[in-house]
Nucleic acid binder design. Structure first.
Lengths: 110, 110
DNA sequence: TGATTATATAAGCACTTGATTATATAATAA
DNA sequence: TTATTATATAATCAAGTGCTTATATAATCA
């Protein structure tokens, strides 16, 4: 059972356009920070700060692989299905991901 | 289909402890402002401002009856079931409502 | 080792938020 | 009509938000 305070924290964490887009991307696959920078066309510090906010409510998980840190959705989270329900109502972000793949830039930082 | 911007606005509107509690009360019944003031133990202007915020995203409806303005959940809202899903995970607010009824204060302003 | 790449963090700043106090508006009661 | 009750709005202010720029940390490469 959630508390009202925890629900507030969670909704504030996901209730921002950039963070909603990040979550939407992560429903498709896991991505490293530099890929999200490319997909969202925002500065790296800004993306890192948004990821931190999402990490704080534990809706995303991080995993370092060499130079890169990959982020994924936390499928064990109490509100994971709730998040999926929401993102299912939002425009899918598949097109931009496909562009990355086609351009051979699935990891494009270097 | 929602837009990311509309989803952000909506989550910001419901993502606040007092507003979540208001919504939770409204899943049980409709209430006038003065009842919500009593239930939530907050100032009348503060409650009115929270109600305004919820009205702006149209998740609640208002209806004047004499001196009182009653608020209810908008069951036609695109995100109504989403909201019910969320409140179902939060502690129910039935006890406090029952106290009002027992005290014969279901409309206690005057 | 030093240079490069990837990511995180800190400081600064404009903007938003949520409370309070004061006041305006709307309906009813005397 | 005037007084009272219910609700909405406005002004103020401290705290939070999200961006930018600058810098720190972490891993890899030459």
């Amino acid at each position: 059972m959630l508390t009202y305070s925890v629900a507030e924290e969670f909704l504030k964490a996901i209730g921002e356009e950039t963070r909603l887009k990040i979550i939407s991307y992560l429903t498709r696959d896991s991505f490293c920070v530099c890929e999200l920078v490319e997909l969202l066309q925002m500065s790296q510090p800004s993306i890192s700060q948004h990821l931190k906010r999402l990490r704080q409510v534990e809706i995303i998980l991080e995993e370092r692989r060499g130079k890169w840190v990959f982020y994924s959705l936390n499928k064990e989270h109490e509100l994971y299905t709730f998040v999926l329900h929401l993102t299912s109502m939002l425009p899918p972000k598949t097109d931009k991901i496909q562009s990355l793949v086609v351009d051979g830039k699935r990891i494009l930082c270097e």
